[in-house]
Nucleic acid binder design. Structure first.
Length: 495
RNA sequence: GCAGAUGUAAUCUAGCUGGUUAGGAUUAAAGCCUUCCAAGCUUUCAGCCCGGGUUCGAAUCCCGGCAUCUGCACCA
């Protein structure tokens, strides 16, 4: 029986649809015991890596609910919407702008509800199903609206992206962190979008987790802060716009992208950092990773440069967007300056400027799913080959058999390790079955107490990647465990 | 949201031309056995998506809802 990612995710406690016992709601998912740990470790790994890019990068945690005024200023209230008209007779709802576009052939995207109503009268449009009359146009918000307070008069929304919380906090953090650029604000948290038709599992959700680094910087000096030498001789996997249909991925030198393709050098620098994160830290196979350039038409107008980060995922049928790198210019702070009437200008070395934003935006749920998709190897049973830093449990402690001589020693080792590491203990069934269980949840190392070990105070350590074992003294277990867990010591280097 | 298909233990699935004690496999739990990779034996737990209707009788037929998959649309 082939191992199916989705059923393993359910069976072993990673992720499944929310509110199952009530029949579920599309677009909402719950993380279970293994999934919550896996997600936390992905987030921690991500945070450590990206916060480490500069001493002036920080984790913050803004509110999930935002006042209407802020989202009005950001543009979401007006453009994160679809106009709908509903038939008064049969209740059939259609996109009003598309309806008008179909008939007139002209773009109707920017029409107000009033304009749509008069267009419908003018063109004498009626319901395609029952020929009934259309009611007046209503705006369907992709944001979830909320009424705050007893009278419900304070309009607010669940945030559609975490980025806005960082922009709203920029001015204060610039002050708190002693007026330096670049300043990085990181948010890991939920965002909410009322998707019309969520599909493809966790790929499109109505409640999703984002991990974002917003770098506020001076475009004229930002490059000076970065170690550009790191890019020498390095190549980046890309699919540029004009490669579409010809080539899925091509490896291109950083220098080419900067000198010939005219991308800003700080942008390419961050492409390289993101690529290193995926290839070295997350262990994505090189041929399954690429930056996908968005054409001018596809990207939002305020994004000066926009590549998606895509990974080839079997469960989702090809390269899929897992993150984005967006050079947004000064669009966001300028908008919030206008909306809030608070100056976003900063003064540095006698220069005054509104900082530009380079945004590194990651979809956490998609990335966690990708871990399962990429690392689940089907070897008669499922084997999840996760890096020690990502696995829900780093170690399992197992007595070879359920025997009175072995169990106390195994218990003791479990106690020894569990304060410092995530350790699973299991003594039921056969040893093979217990290894298989650990394989399925991606535990990289199994420590087994056997009869030989009782004689000479040793245990064996089994490596999930290779299923090989080595014997080590119990005295050295803590030191070795620390090395293996941190990745500083590799299993193959153990004697 | 539209069209089509689908929905049976934790997982995978048989039954679905109406009457079955709803069958199997895997998993899980308990025990026996077992000196390293889902072995074997015994036992146990557990199921027809939800709500109506037709019928003497519904997992099976009909209607509605919810969900999933595929295509279209959507994805500032």
């Amino acid at each position: 029986m082939p191992v199916d990612v989705q059923s393993l995710a359910k069976r072993r406690g990673f992720i499944w649809q929310s509110a199952e016992i009530y029949g579920s709601m599309a677009g909402f998912y719950d993380y279970g015991a293994m999934g919550a740990m896996l997600k936390k470790k992905w987030e921690n790994t991500w945070l450590k890596y990206f916060m480490g890019l500069d001493d002036n990068y920080y984790l913050i945690d803004p509110a999930n609910i935002m006042p209407e005024a802020a989202l009005k200023a950001s543009g979401h209230v007006d453009s994160f919407t679809d106009p709908l008209v509903e038939c008064t007779k049969c209740g059939h709802a259609v996109r009003a702008d598309q309806l008008i576009e179909e008939v007139t052939g002209a773009a109707a995207e920017d029409l107000s509800p009033e304009q749509i109503d008069s267009k419908i009268v003018e063109l004498n449009l009626s319901c395609q199903r029952c020929k009934g009359h259309f009611g007046s146009a209503k705006i369907f918000h992709m944001m979830f609206p909320l009424d705050i307070g007893t009278k419900g008069t304070d309009k607010a929304y669940l945030r559609p992206e975490t980025a806005q919380g960082a922009y709203l906090n920029f001015k204060r953090h610039f002050e708190i962190m002693r007026r330096k650029l670049p300043l990085g604000l990181i948010v890991i948290g939920k965002a909410y979008r009322n998707e019309i038709a969520p599909r493809q599992g966790v790929y499109r959700m109505r409640e999703l987790i984002q991990a974002e680094l917003q770098i506020f910087m001076d475009p004229e000096t930002f490059s000076d802060e970065l170690d550009m030498k790191e890019m020498e001789g390095k190549e980046i996997n890309v699919q540029l716009v004009d490669m579409r249909g010809k080539q899925d991925v091509q490896s291109m030198p950083c220098r080419y992208l900067i000198d010939q393709y005219k991308l800003p050098d700080f942008y390419v620098y961050h492409m390289l950092k993101i690529q290193e994160f995926y290839l070295d830290v997350i262990r994505v196979p090189k041929n399954k990773f690429r930056f996908y350039e968005k054409s001018e038409k596809e990207r939002a107008f305020y994004n000066r440069v926009h590549f998606d980060i895509e990974i080839d995922l079997a469960t989702l049928g090809g390269f899929k967007e897992l993150a984005g790198l967006h050079y947004r210019g000064d669009y966001d702070l300028t908008k919030h300056q206008a909306g809030s009437k608070e100056s976003m200008e900063v003064s540095l070395d006698g220069r005054r400027l509104i900082p530009h934003v380079l945004e590194l935006s990651f979809g956490v749920d998609r990335n966690v799913w990708a871990l399962l998709d990429l690392h689940l190897v089907d070897e008669r049973t499922g084997v999840l080959k996760l890096a020690p830093s990502l696995a829900p449990y780093t170690f399992a402690v197992l007595p070879l058999m359920r025997k009175d001589e072995l169990i106390p020693v195994a218990r003791e080792i479990h106690t020894l390790l569990k304060n410092d590491f995530d350790v699973y203990y299991d003594q039921s069934g056969s040893i093979g079955k217990r290894y298989a269980r650990m394989d399925e949840i991606g535990t990289p190392f199994c420590i087994t107490v056997d009869f030989d070990g009782l004689e000479d105070n040793t245990v064996t350590i089994r490596d999930t990647d290779s299923s090989e074992q080595k014997r080590i003294p119990i005295d050295e277990l803590e030191r070795i465990a620390r090395g293996l867990a941190s990745g500083k010591l590799l299993f193959r280097d153990l004697k």
